[in-house]
Simulated assay, not measured.
Amino acid sequence: MKEIKAFIRPNKVNDILHHLKEAGFENITISSAEGTGKFQDENAFVSQKFSVTDSPIAKIEIVVYDDNVENVVSIISKYGKTLNSGDGLIYVSNVESVFRVKTGFQTI
C-alpha cells in the first residue's frame, strides 16, 4: 500500500475531493496548513504561530493499494493545477502496515 500526501491550493480541494470520491476513493483526510516556498499567495500573511509561513495550503492524505497510485495522482494533478507557480506537491510513500485502533489488529 501507499500513502499519498498532496499539498495544494485551498481553493482546489472541493473539486479534487469530488473527483476522488467519484472514482471510488472515499477515505480521505484533509487538513488546513500554512507553508512557505517559491510562491507567495497575494493573500499571504505572516503567521502568528510560525514566523516563516507565507501561504495558506491544504493537505490531502489518502492510503491506497499500489495499483491505484497513478489514478489518484492523476486526479489530484488534473483538478489541482492552475499552471502557475505554487500549485503544490504530491508525495507517495510506502505503508508498511495498518492497524485498526478499535481492535489493534493488523489489516494488511
Rank of each mutant, 00 (worst) to 15 (best):
M1A: 11
M1W: 00
K2C: 09
I4V: 05
K5Q: 11
A6T: 04
A6N: 03
A6W: 04
F7I: 15
F7G: 03
I8L: 10
R9E: 02
R9Q: 11
R9K: 15
P10H: 08
P10V: 06
P10F: 05
K12M: 15
K12Q: 14
V13Y: 07
V13D: 03
N14Y: 08
D15Y: 06
D15G: 08
H18A: 11
H19D: 07
H19R: 12
H19I: 03
L20M: 11
L20Q: 03
K21R: 15
E22P: 00
A23V: 05
G24L: 09
G24K: 06
F25E: 07
I28T: 00
T29Y: 06
I30W: 01
I30D: 02
I30M: 06
S32D: 14
A33K: 06
G35E: 05
T36N: 12
T36V: 12
G37P: 06
K38G: 12
K38C: 10
F39A: 13
F39Y: 15
F39V: 01
Q40T: 14
N43L: 12
N43G: 09
A44S: 15
F45N: 02
S47I: 02
S47T: 05
Q48K: 14
Q48W: 03
K49V: 07
F50H: 13
S51G: 11
S51T: 11
S51A: 14
S51C: 05
S51D: 13
S55A: 12
S55T: 15
P56D: 11
I57V: 14
I57A: 02
A58M: 01
K59E: 10
K59Y: 00
K59M: 14
I60Y: 04
I60P: 00
E61R: 07
V63Q: 09
V63K: 08
Y65K: 14
D66G: 09
N68F: 11
V69M: 02
V69L: 04
V69Q: 01
V69S: 02
E70C: 06
V73P: 04
V73C: 15
S74A: 14
I75K: 03
I75L: 10
I76V: 15
I76M: 04
S77L: 08
S77R: 11
S77H: 10
S77M: 06
K78V: 07
K78Q: 12
Y79F: 15
G80Y: 01
G80K: 01
G80S: 07
G80D: 04
K81N: 12
K81H: 12
T82K: 07
N84G: 00
S85I: 13
G86L: 04
D87K: 01
D87Q: 00
G88D: 03
L89Y: 08
L89M: 12
L89N: 13
I90T: 07
Y91N: 09
Y91A: 12
Y91M: 09
V92D: 04
V92M: 03
N94L: 05
N94V: 01
E96D: 11
V98G: 10
V98R: 13
F99T: 10
F99H: 10
F99C: 07
F99R: 10
V101H: 06
V101L: 15
K102W: 01
T103L: 04
T103H: 08
F105N: 14
F105H: 11
F105W: 00
Q106I: 08
Q106S: 10
Q106L: 04
I108K: 05
